[in-house]
């Protein structure tokens, strides 16, 4: 199982680096916002891998908190992108 978790962590890191490429290269601000949202979801998966690796249950608490905070941050960024109608 440890070898499998090592491979899983490597695949998730590769996916995270693809997201970082899009954050750096994305021609517009919404591209970067999408990549940040996806990166937050990937971190939730990485917390699961860490929980299985170490056997510590508190990583799942981190995953839940990260999912909710990532959602709030993405909504805030999306409202910022609209930029004109603060009362909608």
């Amino acid at each position: 199982m440890t070898t499998f978790l090592l491979i899983a962590a490597a695949v998730l890191l590769l996916a995270a680096f693809l997201c970082l490429y899009r954050i750096g290269q994305g021609p517009t601000a919404p591209d970067r916002t999408v990549a940040i949202d996806i990166l937050g979801t990937l971190v939730v998966g990485f917390c699961c891998i860490m929980a299985l690796w170490t056997g510590q249950g508190f990583y799942m608490n981190i995953a839940i908190a990260w999912a909710l905070l990532s959602f709030i941050g993405t909504i805030a960024l999306a409202k910022y992108l609209e930029g004109r109608y603060y009362d909608e």
Binding site: T33, T41, I64, F71, T74, A78, E82, R84
Partner: peptide, 26 residues
């Protein structure tokens, strides 16, 4: 906790994507 987190992600991720797409269009 894992199943709870899966429910959260299934609820919040499409909403976030919709908000980003709408913000990008606007």
């Amino acid at each position: 906790k894992a199943m709870l987190c899966a429910v959260f992600i299934l609820l919040t991720s499409p909403v976030a994507a919709h908000a980003i797409a709408r913000g990008a269009y606007k």
